[in-house]
Amino acid sequence: MKAEFTAIIETAPEGGYWAICPEIPGANGQGETIEETKNNLRQAIELILEDRREDILRGLPEDVIQDTVMVG
């Protein structure tokens, strides 16, 4: 899945950077560089979305219709 999300990156008081994603509550990352911080945030977003998807799909009826929707 490809999508764009917003990364809000700030300097961390103890050094390095930390970031949040306003579109995905709970997604955050940190690192010594901006690139490392963005990579950690990307991984957090992927894990959260994967977990949410698995949680929703668990226990659905066998005859449910599953399709895709393109956004943006």
Rank of each mutant, 00 (worst) to 15 (best):
residue 2 K to D: 15
residue 2 K to G: 15
residue 2 K to Q: 15
residue 2 K to I: 14
residue 3 A to S: 13
residue 4 E to Y: 06
residue 6 T to R: 08
residue 6 T to N: 08
residue 6 T to E: 09
residue 8 I to G: 00
residue 8 I to D: 12
residue 9 I to V: 15
residue 10 E to W: 02
residue 11 T to A: 15
residue 12 A to L: 09
residue 12 A to G: 01
residue 12 A to W: 01
residue 12 A to F: 06
residue 13 P to G: 06
residue 13 P to E: 14
residue 13 P to R: 12
residue 14 E to V: 04
residue 14 E to R: 10
residue 15 G to D: 06
residue 15 G to L: 05
residue 16 G to V: 08
residue 16 G to L: 04
residue 16 G to A: 06
residue 17 Y to F: 15
residue 17 Y to M: 05
residue 19 A to C: 08
residue 19 A to Y: 01
residue 19 A to F: 03
residue 19 A to V: 09
residue 19 A to H: 03
residue 20 I to R: 07
residue 21 C to F: 08
residue 22 P to V: 07
residue 22 P to C: 06
residue 23 E to Q: 15
residue 24 I to V: 15
residue 24 I to C: 05
residue 25 P to F: 00
residue 25 P to V: 03
residue 26 G to C: 07
residue 27 A to W: 02
residue 28 N to Y: 12
residue 32 E to R: 11
residue 32 E to L: 09
residue 32 E to F: 06
residue 34 I to C: 01
residue 35 E to I: 10
residue 37 T to Q: 01
residue 38 K to T: 10
residue 39 N to F: 04
residue 39 N to V: 07
residue 39 N to Q: 12
residue 41 L to A: 04
residue 41 L to P: 05
residue 42 R to N: 14
residue 42 R to S: 13
residue 44 A to H: 08
residue 45 I to L: 06
residue 46 E to M: 03
residue 46 E to G: 03
residue 47 L to I: 09
residue 48 I to A: 01
residue 48 I to D: 05
residue 51 D to N: 14
residue 51 D to L: 10
residue 53 R to G: 02
residue 53 R to D: 12
residue 53 R to Q: 11
residue 55 D to H: 11
residue 55 D to P: 01
residue 56 I to E: 10
residue 57 L to T: 03
residue 58 R to H: 08
residue 60 L to C: 02
residue 60 L to Y: 04
residue 61 P to H: 07
residue 61 P to M: 02
residue 63 D to C: 03
residue 63 D to N: 14
residue 64 V to Y: 08
residue 64 V to M: 11
residue 67 D to K: 13
residue 68 T to K: 10
residue 70 M to S: 15
residue 71 V to F: 09
residue 71 V to K: 11
residue 71 V to Y: 12
residue 72 G to Y: 15
residue 72 G to W: 10
